[in-house]
Design a protein around this nucleic acid. Structure first.
Lengths: 196, 196
DNA sequence: TGTACATCAGTGAACGCGCGTTCACTGATGTAC
DNA sequence: TGTACATCAGTGAACGCGCGTTCACTGATGTAC
């Protein structure tokens, strides 16, 4: 069809964005390449102009999702340290909300890609591990700076927070459709356990 | 081939056991019916003598896995209340061990089926929700009895424990292959946060 | 207890379908002159 | 600035393959007499 280079780059990002959403909703194994391309507004043949394979895409999707998530997290952390000390806590509570639970397509990759990562290729495993590392580092630094904690203590707290977030949202989604009230109580219990 | 009724029942259980293992290792969408039957030692054609569909199997597998898990949990709880007060805590620590992390095929369904449940059919969703409900109830009763807590408080603690277990093992598996040391520290941090 | 027959778990070939991937083709873009 | 041509993103048909499921067949099991 003839497409400008800049447009091609934008199209690739649109494919990644579409895949990012449907992968989180239905799992990497639950969507086909043709579905993804259709969601992005293209026919499926062009896929291999942008990606080596579906597995390659999965890795790039995971990396991009973590990059977005980390950038969001960093601005929340900066905001908390500078002007609005409650911003961090608010972000955690928002993560454990019904809205996030019921819309995995938009949600943080920590939970949505956790199950796919070990089952997909090396690229996705690496992206997931590096992404989690970035989250741990950022939260660790936040706790260290805010509460004057030593690095190891702050690090452990950061990991505890991530464990609570991922555990609660994972369970809440798992029981969600069949037991909505149980699902809500898991979110509530986890919210109450969060640090300030 | 001609097979006794008792043997047929045993064969069905063998299929469920094989599926239970490979579903946890590779995800429900990651294994085919033929694979499962081969793992169980049969050809694939006989599958539909036992199950209506793959989705039906997934539901039965999830229910059976939770029944096993719940029965294990109940005997640990009984043991803790009767003769060995540390048995419960030991079981939790064992859940968060490298052995369990690296062998999902044998592991507790709370974490391994959490991601599949919302994406598979109604049967699996129901089995997962009922299974989690059973776990919550059992742990709640344990805390209530052991520490003389009111039901709501004991319930919230039970949910906190489950959130920690599922979150830690999910993240540990997710980062496991690409970042083994990070994975270990998540398990460690979660173990340290467990109640006695 | 022995015989004839219906049942039905397991076999293995076959079904249509959708998957990931390839390919010849197209035409606007971007470059060389 | 205008023209001729190479590039390459996107199209849509096609590839082989493995999926979930169906089916005719088999023979030991279990039952009726």
């Amino acid at each position: 069809m003839g497409v400008a280079k800049k447009q091609a780059v934008r199209n690739k990002q649109a494919i990644i964005a579409a895949a990012s959403r449907v992968f989180r909703e239905r799992g990497v194994d639950g969507v086909g390449v043709a579905d993804i391309m259709l969601e992005a507004g293209f026919t499926h043949g062009g896929f291999y102009n942008h990606f080596e394979s579906k597995s390659d895409l999965a890795g790039q999707v995971c990396a991009a999702a973590f990059a977005d998530g980390l950038s969001d997290l960093k601005s929340v952390v900066d905001q908390s340290l500078a002007t609005d000390p409650r911003a961090f806590r608010r972000a955690l509570e928002n993560y454990l909300s019904k809205g996030v639970r019921d819309d995995p397509g938009q949600a943080c990759p920590t939970a949505t890609f956790a199950a796919d990562a070990p089952r997909q290729g090396e690229g996705m495993q690496k992206a997931y591990a590096e992404g989690m590392q970035g989250f741990v580092d950022t939260i660790e630094q936040y706790f260290a700076q805010r509460d004057g904690l030593s690095a190891p203590v702050a690090r452990e707290r950061a990991m505890e927070v991530l464990v609570t977030l991922v555990g609660a949202i994972t369970i809440a989604r798992g029981v969600g459709a069949a037991a909505p009230r149980l699902s809500d109580s898991f979110l509530k219990a986890a919210r109450r356990k969060l640090p300030d």
